[in-house]
């Protein structure tokens, strides 16, 4: 079974943390560096996020994501170091090109924040089963319909992709060119995407009927097959994260 879920099954304390707490962490990790606009705070929070990711034993799986992020950040670093409007103090000179201190630190702050945001999301995505996340949200009061949409995406999209593969094979076996020059590929696009869309639409109707007869729209309280998982101290974690956010806000106001 192909899956588009990025979840990595490991034994770590992060895997035992409530998905909701991880969402709190994302909020905290984004808000705190914004409220304290200093390089040190941004760096500290980033280090905390990275340590957490490391403790979650998933850092190796996330390297490809960082590869892409670094590519973007390096361009930011170069451009800001050279052209940041507040640039005053030259640090280094290579022929005509001058590197400035202000721009460099500004770019560094941006980079820390970006890495921080990316890392806090990676913590959620790589250490949480999508089904657990949806179930926690539904228990917290998210509409079960919306929960269904999120949960089913993880399975139905791979199904659609394999349908796409089948249709491509079928069309190719009838002599359609699907590879080669751009113009050939463009021409192949419609005959491929048409059947995929149509069959998906038909499936949607049938699936709607099947859901309907299984009480999808039943009124009254739903129950859950899985017991509420015994997550690691969800209230304590959530309250302390809330406290951190609050302290940051208060500090910002009196500042």
């Amino acid at each position: 079974m192909k899956s588009i879920s990025l979840y990595v099954d490991r034994q770590s304390f992060l895997h035992r943390i409530d998905p909701i707490s991880k969402i709190y962490y994302i909020v905290a990790a984004i808000l705190v560096p914004i409220l304290y606009p200093s390089l040190t705070v941004a760096f500290a929070v980033m280090v905390i996020s990275l340590i957490l990711l490391f403790l979650g034993k998933v850092i190796r799986q996330t390297l490809s994501v960082y590869g892409f992020v670094f590519l973007v950040l390096i361009t930011v670093l170069i451009i800001q170091t050279l052209f940041y409007p507040g640039n005053e103090t030259p640090v280094y000179r290579i022929g005509q090109v001058v590197l400035y201190r202000e721009g460099f630190f500004y770019a560094l702050t941006i980079s820390f924040r970006v890495i921080n945001i990316v890392t806090s999301f990676l913590i959620l995505v790589f250490t949480t089963r999508s089904a657990d996340l949806v179930e926690s949200l539904v228990r917290k009061g998210l509409s079960p319909r919306f929960g269904y949409v999120i949960a089913s995406v993880f399975q139905i999209v791979p199904e659609m992709m394999s349908a796409m593969g089948r249709i491509t094979d079928a069309q190719r076996s009838r002599g359609m060119e699907t590879e080669g020059k751009l113009s050939v590929r463009m021409k192949a696009f419609l005959p491929l995407i048409g059947p995929v869309v149509l069959s998906s639409l038909l499936n949607v109707k049938e699936r709607a009927l099947a859901l309907e007869v299984r009480g999808f729209n039943a009124k009254g309280k739903k129950t859950f097959l899985n017991e509420e998982k015994n997550f690691l101290a969800p209230t304590a974690v959530q309250w302390s994260l809330l406290a951190v956010i609050l302290i940051a806000i208060i500090w910002r106001i009196i500042q």
Partner: peptide, 11 residues
């Protein structure tokens, strides 16, 4: 059709 009766939200 057995395929379209699978909810798709369960693992």
């Amino acid at each position: 059709n057995p395929f379209t009766q699978v909810t798709g939200s369960k693992l």
